[in-house]
Design a protein around this nucleic acid. Sequence first.
DNA 1: AACAGGCCGCTTGTTACCTCA
DNA 2: CATGAGGTAACAAGCGGCCTG
Length: 383
Amino acid sequence: MQNKREMELGLSLGDAATTSKPFGFMEKSTQLTNKVTSGFCMGLSIGTNHTLQEEDEDKDDHKLSNNIDHNSDNTNTRTATVQANKGTILTVDTSTDPPIQLDLLPNTPVPRNQNSILTLASDNGTNFEAGSSGNMSRGFDVNRFSAVMVHEDQADQDGATLSSSPPNSATSSFQMDFCIYSSKGGSGSNIEADQAERASSRASDEEENGSARKKLRLSKEQSSFLEESFKEHNTLTPKQKLALAKELNLRPRQVEVWFQNRRARTKLKQTEVDCEYLKRCCETLTEENRRLHKELQELRALKTSNPYYMQLPATTLTMCPSCERVAAAATSATATTATTTTTNTQNNTTDPTSNTTGLSLSSSRPRFYPFSHTQTHPHQPKA
DNA sequence: AACAGGCCGCTTGTTACCTCA
DNA sequence: CATGAGGTAACAAGCGGCCTG
């Protein structure tokens, strides 16, 4: 599992090779998905009322829930930009009246042999629920499609207001159903097709109960871009959020949530690191305490065996009142202490808690402190 | 004081991966 | 070897609370 963790960390940096599911929306077009073709399909239809209702806009997920369709799957219907993992971005600007414009924006160099085909299929009989009460967006699941609505970013900037339509109004319903079919030319299309097929089967199951929350998985490119941005600043100003959302073709809310979750992960990681550090400190201090106990025993034994030992000047042996470290101010004592310490450290066999002399540290603590605790601690004798 | 916006902690639901029978 | 079930971790998102301007 450690390997997996490392792999996941790597993924957070955008370099993981784990399979993403860029075409999770393919269940809408499974008939078009096979081993040799990958792509996506969106249904686009525009209701009779062109008042566009903003759903799930940024912060309004639940605050505005009274005014939006609770069954919508985080769907928005102003502009759809679909970025396939080949780097192709489809932008459908529906903020204007027909003719609907499709922009094929090469995000990253796209091999020409992919033969992307745009098909605007608003008349192809795809499910079109114009004006159906409260279900205006069911035919277009942003999450499932890994698609995003760019212009709601613009709506944010413009301070766009929500539709004046009353709750569950039958206004502004359109769905998208245009298709990009990448021919087999692209590498990895088989994998994508497999993923799409898997997603398709799952989504088909989900569609049966109809209430399953759809899950968006950010692409590697989006994740790494967000990661880079997070390295620069781990909080977002509204402007930055909008810019990022626009850059990545995500909803501002998604960017915001990503940063929140990212901060939470960072904090969790930091907590783990801190915990590990404190644990090591505790171990070190415990070991130090054990060592000092032994050192003290050695000194006491030395005192017993060498009656001249205590004839050294009183100031040669000191003990820090706070940490109880024994230090030597005189060179002879320093050498003795250091030798003793080394010996004790290497031959840690005696019981550190034993106190054969019957003297406790507190009672035998030296009462002379010839050093200052301010800057130069005697524990680290100067060269 | 009310409000909006942002953040945080907690939680939920989904997904991908791994193990094992 | 293939496969499906179960477990687990990661992650996006929802929700409520708190803080601040």
